[in-house]
Write a protein that binds this DNA or RNA. Structure first.
Length: 213
DNA sequence: CCCATTTCCCCCTTACATCA
DNA sequence: CTGATGTAAGGGGGAAATGG
């Protein structure tokens, strides 16, 4: 067949389309990946104006009939691409010029593509919004946990002070986590967070920076 | 191998039809 | 009447096939 895009070409076209799309959503990130295009401004030839007056030219831009559009839509649903054979068959079925059928498919693919882009945008936006929401929720949770930790440390200090006051023969005046039995954590609902205490004091991680660790 | 031609496609744009 | 919107079609330019 004379006209048949290679798989590579199709794939490249799709990648380029995606990059262009992403570069529009995220300027400055993806646009670096698009091959730089030299902007050459060429004057476009203006199209001849079609006279709307049917009586003078015999031509009048016509919308396709509902039946024609229905059949075209059915065919488009089957396959978005149009081979010559199918184009000619469809054209004779519809009483249209094969060129008109090709143009209709071209425009239909463009509509389909922009609809897809819009859907993809909405999906990304929804995902983004829910991620932001989750981020806020997690940040709130981190704050609450920090408060709990602070309270636990205060409580611990009071215990240590009391112990120091009653047992002067204590092996060491400096407190070590080794002497705290695991059940200590149970009271604060912090199971599994023991590692938090391994961090140096005042080195808590703010915001979402911990994600970078 | 090179080059011109043909055919098809995508993309952008324009002109026309229709409707609120 | 007018502006907005939808759509058929024009035209530029790229890619691939083909033939001389």
């Amino acid at each position: 067949m004379l006209r048949e895009m290679t798989t590579n070409m199709k794939a490249q076209t799709q990648v380029d389309d995606q990059l262009v799309l992403l570069s529009q959503y995220y300027p400055g990130i993806y646009d670096q990946l698009i091959p730089e295009q030299v902007e050459v401004v060429k004057p476009r030839r203006r199209r001849k104006k079609i006279k709307a007056d049917a009586s003078s030219t015999g031509f009048r831009k016509r919308k396709l009939s509902d039946e024609q559009v229905t059949l075209l839509e059915q065919n488009f649903g089957d396959e978005h691409k149009l081979e010559s054979e199918r184009k000619d068959r469809l054209a004779s079925e519809l009483g249209l010029d094969p060129r008109q059928v090709a143009v209709w498919f071209q425009n239909r693919r463009a509509r389909w593509k922009s609809k897809k882009i819009e859907e993809e945008y909405l999906k990304l936006k929804t995902d983004h919004d829910s991620t932001i929401l989750e981020k806020c929720r997690l940040e709130t949770e981190v704050l609450q946990l920090k408060e709990q930790l602070c309270e636990a440390e205060k409580k611990l200090n009071r215990l240590v002070e009391r112990l120091d006051g009653t047992t002067s023969t204590s092996p060491s005046s400096s407190f070590s986590m080794e002497y705290i039995e695991p059940p200590f954590f149970d009271g604060f609902g912090m199971e599994g967070l023991e590692n938090v205490f391994c961090m140096q004091e005042n080195s808590y991680i703010h915001g979402f920076d911990w994600l970078n660790i």
